[in-house]
Design a protein around this nucleic acid. Structure first.
Length: 263
DNA sequence: ACTACGTCCTGCGAGC
DNA sequence: TGCTCGCAGGACGTAG
């Protein structure tokens, strides 16, 4: 489940591999979620950016390719075109191949005019690690909705790039029950700080690998060894010793401490 | 306009 | 041992 830290790790590794290269050949799985990958043959890479969990490949000819990794997506050099989970690939002019692997096909690849985004990417909240992410704006955004706080975080609207792992981690660190619908300004400030903290640490640790995530070098991250809440239901809380519980919030598994995160 | 929930996908682990 | 079944979850579609 690549979230901001995992996608950022991939971006940093892909950029030097792609800069100054152009695509000589490409193919994809027949699903419309991946066929746009074929449209960039002949185009050159100019830069690789990230917004939230989206990778943005800037190409020449006024073209941008947007890749979302979904749950199990991987972008990395490919040495086996018969990999059954390879959903798209691009051959570069140095004869190396960039592969998009995605066991569960939750990811998607799109082509658009530069910056002309639709859907979630078009209405994405601010980058959590930039100065655009302020407590005041975060507070106003959360206040404007009556959904549960965790659900709002997963919507990508109050802030970009937070998924299930870091939503649970941030709520735990901030002492906020993820199912609450309204936050005080002070709690909002704590959540704001916690989001920045858990994401910064996860980037520094190279992302979290629970099962599928590998970076563009095919290597696992290390942040799974530093998670304090996600995936630890049944274990004692690192703050108070209470046994962490697991519930469903709007259909998503959620781990929390009943003692530290009161409603 | 909003919120809630079903859907897509496949592999894996629990339970019988 | 071998099978079924539920779960994992990001974004989107649909219903109310």
């Amino acid at each position: 489940m690549p979230e901001l830290p995992e996608v950022e790790s991939i971006r940093r590794q892909l950029e030097p591999l792609l800069m100054g290269r152009y695509v000589t050949e490409a193919d994809s799985h027949p699903s419309g979620k991946f066929t746009p990958a074929r449209e960039i043959v002949g185009l050159g890479f100019e830069a690789v950016f990230r917004r939230g969990k989206y990778l943005l490949f800037h190409l020449d000819n006024e073209t941008e390719m947007v890749v979302h990794l979904g749950m199990t997506g991987q972008l990395l050099p490919c040495d086996n075109l018969s990999d059954p989970y390879l959903r798209a690939w691009w051959r570069l002019d140095n004869d190396r191949i960039l592969g998009y692997r995605d066991v569960r096909r939750f990811g998607r690849i799109r082509i658009c005019l530069p910056g002309q985004y639709e859907g979630t990417l078009g209405s994405l909240g601010p980058e959590p690690l930039s100065d655009d992410f302020t407590v005041d704006q975060f507070y106003a955004s959360l206040k404007a909705s009556n959904r549960k706080v965790k659900t709002q975080l997963l919507s990508q609207r109050p802030v970009a790039g937070v998924g299930n792992i870091y939503a649970d981690e941030a709520c735990f660190r901030a002492g906020i029950y993820p199912g609450v619908r309204k936050l005080t300004k002070a709690k909002t400030a704590a959540l704001h700080e916690s989001i920045r903290y858990v994401l910064t640490m996860a980037v520094a640790n190279g992302g979290t690998t629970l099962r599928d995530y590998v970076n563009a070098e095919g290597k696992k991250g290390n942040n799974q060894f530093y998670l304090e809440c996600y995936g630890r239901a049944g274990e004692p809380c690192v703050k108070c010793g209470e046994i962490l519980r697991r519930v469903m919030i709007d259909g998503r598994g959620t781990t929390f401490c009943k003692s530290c995160q009161k409603r």
